[in-house]
Amino acid sequence: MSAVPVTDETAADFARSAPVIEVKNLWTVFGEQVVHRDLSIAIEAGEVVSLVGGSGSGKTTLMRQMLGLEHPRQGSVAVFGIPLAGTPKHLVKKIRRRWGVLFQEGALYSALPVFDNIALPLRELRAFDEDFIHDMVMLKLDMVDIERRHAWKMPSDLSGGMIKRIALARALVLEPELVFLDEPTAGLDPDRSESFVSLIQSLQRSLNFTVVMVTHDLDTLVSLSSRIAVLAEQRILAYGTLHEVTAVDHPFVRNFFHGERGKRAMAAPAAQALIG
């Protein structure tokens, strides 16, 4: 593979051999504060990986590193086998089109109606006409169970649950192979949160994209993730299935998984199936 020059066409094929995301010996430092100390993790295609850790443990920062929104002090972050630092801009742009990001508050463009929010990435490609874009946006709205009559509403007129769904539709509009979810269920009531989780789950199963998510919510974590990465002490403390991770003896793990909330979530059928 190394002999093949990286072109637009071959770039698409890297995902098969290399891990989708490979973080090697990453150091993140803000001023005096070391957030990540020599952190490494590799995420394979098709996985649903949850990043968990106490507040301030650097999970969101790690996700921002993977997105190229923060820059490593040392070490490297490669997505689809292509390092984010030191790669020509137009290739990094190709990567950016192959992932979708769901921000915690949705980050819909407040000045644009729902339709234009979802259409924006498609229009940026300048490859499709308005008729196609219209059908595509409607298709994505159908996929996230948003009624079409909401298409011309402004984000400020929508409820939190709808904003999340529409933001998910926007994240999925370029058919990403990799989807980042930042606290996907934060701010949703239990009922909505459950239906949003099952929506993500069914989309992930049918479209088979890789998911990296940051979450605090044990129910979300248990029902969605195939692997869990625990961040503590500025590194990846444990990376594995729920069963493997819960076996680790560490104060954070004990607190998080074996506390009152943890026990309840683990008793759920989904968790039982995972632990086996």
Binding site: H134, D135, M138, L139, D142, M143, W152, L207
Partner: peptide, 17 residues
């Protein structure tokens, strides 16, 4: 098949007013 399953739904066109 999954990619066509969503397209089978009844289509009403929702244009901008």
């Amino acid at each position: 098949a999954v990619f066509f399953s969503n397209l089978d739904r009844d289509k009403e066109r929702v244009g901008a007013p």
